[in-house]
């Protein structure tokens, strides 16, 4: 238990230090890999049997998912529980999330992707009633009318209530269409990457020319005469 907590703390420290490094990607990757490697210690309790669904974890006598020290694991409490398996396939997403504020504030995968946080096996965790693993993005981007508002509230608005209120009134975020008629609401994930929601920096368009850089061409078919000298 203590060792596990220590591992968790060290992971937190690693995160703090790596986020300060300029080469964030490689550092963040290694922190997760190290963390996974650290946790894969041999079992210290003979009652535990290795879990088939969650490599590196074990199932105790009561059929609960536990770590190597016998601590019962709830999916909502351990932020690496999904990453353990999904890191390989969704590396970019995991790294982006790991660098975001969502990671620091412990907004875990299951908050949006569903799943049963009480489940101890893979089957239980993938509770179909709460799961929408793949289709969040498509459903959000394709939705029209009031469904957009519902989806925006379900996924982002429940935590970001103030932003949701402004967005619904048309003050936060972008709207296109008609000011006196039908408007197109730009749903949250059209501007914010949900795994790293901070607005991305952009390359600005070229600066305006300074007055002395602007060249005024003489009109071609007109000869400008000096009135006084007549030349």
């Amino acid at each position: 238990m203590i060792a596990f907590r220590f591992a968790y703390l060290s992971f937190a420290f690693l995160l703090v230090f790596t986020s300060a490094l300029p080469c964030g990607y490689s550092a963040a990757e290694s922190s997760i890999v190290d963390e996974i490697a650290e946790e894969q210690l041999p079992a210290s309790d003979d009652n535990l049997t290795p879990s088939k669904d969650h490599p590196g974890l074990f199932v105790n006598g009561q059929g609960e998912l536990v770590d190597d020290l016998g601590t019962i694991i709830r999916l909502s409490e351990n932020k690496n529980i999904c990453i353990k398996c999904h890191y390989g396939k969704h590396e970019k997403i995991v790294v982006a999330w790991d660098k975001s504020k969502h990671s620091r504030k412990k907004v875990l995968c299951i908050k949006c992707h569903g799943g049963n946080s009480e489940g101890s096996t893979l089957k239980e965790a993938k509770d179909e009633t709460k799961t929408n693993f793949k289709h969040i993005k498509e459903s959000m981007l394709k939705a029209t009318g009031d469904v957009v508002k519902e989806l925006a509230f379900d996924y982002c608005g429940q935590c970001h209530g103030d932003k949701y209120r402004d967005w619904e009134a048309g003050i936060h975020g972008k709207r296109t269409g008609f000011w006196n008629g039908e408007k197109e609401y730009w749903v949250c994930i059209r501007c914010h990457d949900p795994h790293n929601p901070k607005f991305k920096k952009r390359v600005p368009k070229p600066r305006p020319l300074k007055p002395d850089e602007i060249v005024f061409k003489k009109p071609q078919n007109v000869v400008v005469k000096n009135i006084k000298s007549g030349k």
Partner: peptide, 25 residues
């Protein structure tokens, strides 16, 4: 329609509406 600058703004910082309409943005 919205002005061109309001439609293009990537940050959604530009808002436009009717000052006489109490429900406008």
């Amino acid at each position: 329609r919205y002005p061109a600058c309001a439609e293009v703004c990537p940050a959604g910082a530009r808002k436009f509406g009717n000052l006489l309409d109490p429900n406008s943005e």
